[in-house]
Simulated assay, not measured.
Amino acid sequence: MANSPQAKKRARQADRAYAVNKARRSRIRTYLRKVEEAIASGNQEAAVAALREAQPELMRGVTKGVVHKNTAARKMSRLSARVKALGA
């Protein structure tokens, strides 16, 4: 258990950061799920719109340190390839 004032403060900060990061991660996953559902429905216009909404959210997660840069790039690449394949 944290005993020194510094350790107590770090524990409070860690709890706060955990809550914020969890909310951000959940928000990103929600946007990605909307893209997945649009792809599953086969509607390319809805999928493109959902992808456009998801991209800034995912990249914001990168700048905030919630998601790694390469992970976000990989997810965007794979999703955009799947959305593009709907039109073919």
Rank of each mutant, 00 (worst) to 15 (best):
Y18C: 02
A49T: 11
N43M: 06
A49I: 04
G65I: 09
L86I: 05
T71M: 10
V83W: 03
N70R: 11
R24G: 03
T30F: 05
R24S: 09
A23C: 01
P5T: 11
R60G: 10
S4E: 00
Y18W: 10
V62C: 10
N70M: 11
R29D: 04
A11R: 06
A72G: 05
Y31E: 15
Y31S: 15
R82Q: 15
N21K: 15
Y18E: 09
L58W: 02
L32W: 00
V35M: 07
A38L: 06
K75W: 12
I28Q: 02
Q55S: 12
E57T: 14
T30W: 04
P5G: 11
R74D: 01
A19E: 15
Q13D: 12
K9H: 01
I39H: 01
R12K: 15
A11S: 10
A50I: 03
R25V: 04
A88N: 09
G87K: 15
N70K: 14
A38C: 08
Q6Y: 05
I39D: 02
A49R: 13
S4Y: 01
Y31H: 12
V83I: 07
V48W: 03
A46Y: 02
E57A: 08
K84V: 00
D15F: 10
A17L: 15
A81R: 09
A23V: 08
L79K: 02
A17S: 15
A40T: 14
E53K: 03
Q13W: 09
G61S: 08
Y18Q: 08
K34M: 06
K75R: 15
I28H: 01
L32I: 14
L32H: 02
Q55C: 03
R10P: 05
P5Y: 08
A81N: 10
N3D: 11
Q13L: 12
D15V: 04
S41P: 08
A54Y: 00
A46H: 10
K84N: 05
A38P: 01
E45S: 13
A14H: 06
D15G: 13
V62S: 05
L32A: 04
A38Y: 12
R24H: 07
M76Y: 05
